[in-house]
C-alpha cells in the first residue's frame, strides 16, 4: 500500500475543513474554536491547529489529509505540517477581496512545499461570486511563474465527488514528481 500526505491550505473560509470532512473515510480530527473574527469569515468556528482525515483511493493508495488554519497568525502550524506533505491543495474562495493576489500570496507562503511537491488550486464559492474566472487565476499564475503549469479548478468543498476529482489530480501529480525525483526521507512520517 502506498501512502501520500496532502496539505489543504488557503484563506480562512475557503473550505479546507469542509473539504476534508467531505473526503475523509475516518472520523475527522478537528480543532475548531469559536470564531471571533466574523468580518474575515462569517462562520461559527475556525480551525486553530489542524484537521486530519484519511481516504483510500484505488484500494491501494492511502492519502492522509491535513488541513491548516487559514490565518497567518497560525503560520507555525503551516511549517509543522508542510514538512510532512508532498502535495498542496490550495483552496481560494472566489468571494475574497482581491482573491487573485491573495492566491499568489498563499502560494508564495508555501513555496518550499511547491518546490518539492505538486500543487493544485481549487477555486471555491464561485456560486457566491462569479468573478474572477479560472482563466484570471491561470493568467496570474503564469505571469508569476512562467515555467510552471499549475492546474486550477472550480470546486465546491461540500461536494465529495468534486473534491475527489481534485484530489486524484493532485495525487497523480505527486506520483509523477516522485517518479522523477524520489522523496528524501521525511523528518517525521507519522503523527
Amino acid at each position: 500500500m502506498s501512502e501520500h500526505v496532502v496539505l489543504f491550505a488557503g484563506p480562512m473560509g475557503s473550505g479546507k475543513t469542509t473539504a476534508i470532512r467531505s473526503l475523509s473515510e475516518i472520523a475527522v480530527v478537528s480543532t475548531e474554536a469559536t470564531n471571533t473574527d466574523r468580518e474575515t469569515a462569517d462562520k461559527e468556528t475556525t480551525t486553530v491547529a489542524l484537521d486530519y482525515g484519511e481516504i483510500t483511493i484505488d484500494d491501494v493508495t492511502k492519502v492522509r489529509l491535513y488541513g491548516v488554519p487559514g490565518q497567518k497568525r497560525f503560520d507555525f502550524m503551516w511549517s509543522i505540517l508542510a514538512g510532512r506533505a508532498r502535495g498542496l491543495l490550495l483552496l481560494i474562495n472566489n468571494d475574497a477581496p482581491d482573491s487573485v493576489a491573495l492566491l499568489l500570496e498563499y502560494l508564495n507562503d508555501f513555496r518550499e512545499l511547491h518546490a518539492r511537491g505538486a500543487v493544485v488550486i481549487g477555486v471555491t464559492k464561485s456560486d457566491v461570486s462569479e468573478t474572477p474566472s479560472v482563466a484570471d487565476y491561470s493568467a496570474a499564475l503564469t505571469a508569476a511563474s512562467p515555467d510552471q503549469l499549475i492546474p486550477v479548478f472550480t470546486v465546491d468543498p461540500r461536494n465529495a465527488e468534486e473534491m475527489r476529482t481534485l484530489l486524484l489530480t493532485l495525487v497523480a501529480s505527486v506520483e509523477m514528481r516522485e517518479l522523477l525525483a524520489p522523496a528524501p526521507t521525511p523528518i517525521s512520517e507519522n503523527i
Binding site: V29, S30, T31, E32, A33, V48, A49, L50, P69, R73, F74, F76, M77
Partner: peptide, 17 residues
C-alpha cells in the same frame, strides 16, 4: 504575546482533540 497566544490556542485545541 501575539505569537504565544496563537500557539496556546493551537495547543489547547489539540489537547482537547
Amino acid at each position: 504575546g501575539g505569537r504565544f497566544a496563537s500557539m496556546s490556542s493551537s495547543v489547547q485545541a489539540l489537547s482537547d482533540a
